[in-house]
Design a protein around this nucleic acid. Structure first.
Length: 440
RNA sequence: CGGGGUGUAGCGCAGGUGGUAGCGCGCAGCGUUUGGGACGCUGAGGUCGUAGGUUCAAGUCCUAUCACCCCGACCA
């Protein structure tokens, strides 16, 4: 996957907002090596097994066969925890709250742009705590950070919940997820947060001395969000005209397209554009005065790129001291006076952000079902597809059978759902509904 | 890793039965244009994925090989 400047600018905006949230919750950034000695990975049994099929392994270095192969990090639990073991001595060193922005490699058999690439960019948080409660709280806190980010910044509503044993991260005690519905009604895991318990602590001997001088293993979490979310933004908001980017993350919030014929008109329009630029201070805008393209061509190009707002300004507007404002999400055009333009733009960007969210939410709700009959369950999945709230007995057998028969997996076990019922497949007692869907 | 498909100009493609490599878009120059993907003229651009082979002659036939795409099993 190659990320060109416009796409990378989007990722930078994602990084900027998330990074601020991490810092605000007490985390610090650090960087760990790309290459990890193979033996590190082998220390946590479930973790190796989970990742073994996906590893890129370096066998040669400097023209020689390496004594111990190096794996290219698929995630950094092992190398980070090897260091945590050295850094943590006392309860005073806890909690240790670290985040890393980096690339990782997973040797996927089948790739899909943005959603499943051999190499991707992400952030991975790794924390160590004195108690299970604190670690659990941290895992839930960061899940909440992701939820808020998805909904407020990406304008994507998400289901929050826990993963089933089959779907959890290899090495975690349990995994939390935010799941979003794409426009083809499939589910996409947009971020995850793991409660690791003491699995890695025991594998890497990460211990600390308590206040009363006992030696205890730490309790840990890890959590990540990747460039996959760019795919989510495209697939949730895009339409036949191209991308529709949420204003809060869009590299360009407003594009100004000037229109003129004569040199005289050009001079007048340029002068008016200067006023518009003044109004746009603090807004991410671009003035597209390329001469080789017609205004109509530019309209189409910026629409494809998903710029939320377009300002058109030509002789007619100059004369009346106004501009034409066009929304990408609705296509709606409105005449707006130069006077007070800033307020109108800002209000409009907020409006677009809200509208994208509510459109996505409506779509998800329209394609979510409560299902109690397995035949209907199958019918929906074969037909339109969507999120299915269904009872599940909790057995891995039923989960696997349902997956085999319908291709649907348990995307999330929602928090706080109490209603009891009967397993959609076997009819045994179920304590709550879970969300089934076909996933990417 | 199995099944299918495609490699010909920057991009998208056409090139039955072997015989001088083409079209559209894009690109360059000039002119006219510019309020929803402008038009005319002129022009540049190709070891036909790669390597062998058959033939007087291969984009075309044969063999091998590589790459990419799609569909399934594994995965953020």
């Amino acid at each position: 996957m190659i990320i060109r400047p416009y796409g990378y600018a989007l990722w930078e905006n994602i990084q900027k907002t998330l990074d601020a949230k991490f810092k605000a919750t007490g985390h610090k950034n650090a960087y760990f090596p790309l290459f990890i000695p193979q033996s590190f990975l082998a220390k946590e049994e479930e973790h190796v097994e989970g990742f073994a099929p996906q590893l890129a392994v370096v066998t040669h270095g400097g023209g020689k066969v390496l004594e111990e192969p190096l794996i290219v990090r698929p995630t950094s639990e092992t190398i980070i925890n090897a260091m945590f073991a050295k850094w943590i001595r006392s309860w005073r060193d806890l909690p240790l709250l670290i985040n890393q922005w980096c690339n990782v490699v997973r040797w996927e058999l089948r790739t899909r742009l943005f959603l499943r690439t051999l190499e991707f960019l992400w952030q991975e948080g790794h924390t160590a705590h004195a108690t299970a409660e604190e670690a659990e709280e941290e895992a839930r806190r960061m899940l909440e950070v992701y939820r808020e980010f998805a909904e407020e910044e990406m304008a994507i509503p998400v289901i929050v919940g826990r993963k089933s044993e089959a779907e959890k991260f290899a090495g975690a005690v349990h995994t939390y997820t935010i799941e979003a519905m794409m426009q083809d009604r499939r589910a996409l895991q947009a971020g995850t947060s793991h409660f690791l318990g003491q699995n890695f602590a025991k594998a890497f001997e990460i211990t600390y001395q308590t206040k009363d001088n006992r030696l205890e293993y730490v309790w840990q979490t890890s959590w990540g969000l990747s460039t996959r979310v760019i795919g989510a933004i495209i697939m949730v908001h895009g339409d036949d005209q191209g991308l529709i980017l949420p204003p809060r993350l869009a590299p360009i919030e407003v594009v100004i397209v000037p229109i003129w014929r004569s040199d005289e008109q050009e001079a007048q329009v340029r002068k008016a554009v200067e006023r518009v630029k003044d109004e746009l201070r603090g807004v991410r805008y671009e003035f597209d005065d390329r001469e080789t393209y017609t205004p109509g061509w530019k309209f189409n190009e910026w629409e494809q790129k998903g710029v939320p707002l377009r300002i058109e300004i030509g002789p007619r507007e100059v004369e009346k001291e106004q501009v034409v404002l066009v929304r990408r999400d609705t296509g709606e055009k409105s005449i707006t006076p130069l006077e007070g333009l800033k307020e109108r733009i800002e209000a409009s960007l907020v409006e677009i952000q809200k509208n994208l969210y509510s459109k996505a939410l409506t779509f998800r709700e329209e394609n979510s079902y409560q299902v109690d009959d397995y035949e209907e369950f199958k019918r929906i999945l074969e037909g339109p597809g969507g999120f299915l709230g269904a009872h599940w007995c909790g057995s891995a057998e039923c989960e696997a059978q349902i997956k085999e028969e319908t291709k649907a997996t348990i995307r999330a076990i929602p928090f706080q759902e109490q209603e009891r019922g009967k397993c959609i497949r076997c009819g045994e007692v179920s304590v709550q509904r879970v969300v089934f869907a076909k996933a990417y």
